[in-house]
Amino acid sequence: MARPIWSGSLSFGLLNIPVSLMSGERRTDISFRMLDSRDKKPIRFERVNAETGEEVPWKDIVKAFEYDKGSYVVIEKEDIASAAPESHESVDVEAFVDAGSIGTRFYEKPYILVPGKKAEKGYVLLRETLKKTGKIGIARVVIRTREYLCAVMPEDDALVLILLRYPQELVDPADYALPTGATSSYRIADKEFQMATQLIESMSADWTPDAYHDEFRQRLSEIIKTRIKAKGGKAKVPDTPAHREDAATNVVDFVALLQKSLQDNTRTPAAAKRPAKKAANRTAKKTATKKAAKKTPAKKAAKKATKASRRKTTETLRKAS
């Protein structure tokens, strides 16, 4: 069973709810080791002095801040500890805001708050009140030694805590060249808006997270299995087509493109991609059958010519005798 990151309390006003902070994500990335290609032995990274090249033991390593090029100030453990907040085991809600008022770019990492023993009443009270009012709590939480801004929100039967990015951590979209101004300045016709709306509606579906999978990880796992079975990693893996630079087209006729999309009824969900393979297989079988049918008359004609030639040869030999 997963262990809590810490056990403490969730507080708002004078109400304190005993909770445990649990991880809300599961890492599934495939990790690699770096090897020496000559003998396939692992490569070890060492801590060495940039001047002398000698290895430095952990006890002699200190943290420092580079305030100018090549100039450092050493920061002691006591300095870091004094900057850390005193409260390490609580989620202190400072305000409640409308659920839709926080931009999606602020959300960073999820956790799950699990109620402690005999704390279910306060937990359910906060969860259901947040659902009813459409609010989420803005709080501060300390994880290990760092303080984070976070949001506390209801999701089904859970209270979810999501770390938030500070505004200073986000790039202002205005820093980039983005299309601004009235839509009329881009010469978008009403028909194009109508067809785009129709296309989006035709492709609309319920959000079903289980329909989406990390396909890159699955394919990479299969490649790894193939390498392992080959003993020595010499098995050949089919090449995938390289991305063409001209694959992206600067489409001018949006109406024609939208019309074709509507006719094809193109859908993006993963579940809709599967039948394409079956259709391709059926097409390939039909093509093979047609080719075979074309070849059959030619074979029959060749056989007839061979038999006729044999009969002529037999008659010639009889006359000669």
Rank of each mutant, 00 (worst) to 15 (best):
E55S: 10
W58F: 08
I61H: 06
I61K: 03
A64K: 09
A64H: 06
A64T: 13
F65Y: 08
E66D: 11
E66W: 09
D68I: 03
S71E: 13
V73Y: 08
V74E: 08
V74C: 08
E76L: 09
K77R: 12
K77A: 11
E78H: 10
S82P: 08
A83P: 03
P85M: 04
E86Y: 03
H88L: 03
H88Y: 01
V91W: 05
A95Y: 01
V97H: 06
A99E: 12
A99W: 01
G100T: 12
G100M: 14
G103V: 08
R105Y: 09
F106K: 01
F106V: 00
E108H: 15
K109N: 14
P110V: 12
V114Q: 14
V114G: 01
P115N: 11
K117F: 10
K118C: 00
A119H: 04
K121Q: 15
K121C: 04
Y123N: 03
R127L: 15
R127D: 13
R127E: 13
E128T: 12
T129N: 13
T129F: 13
K131F: 15
K131E: 14
T133K: 10
I136A: 03
G137N: 05
A139I: 00
R140K: 12
V142E: 00
I143Y: 01
I143G: 02
T145C: 00
R146G: 05
R146P: 08
E147N: 04
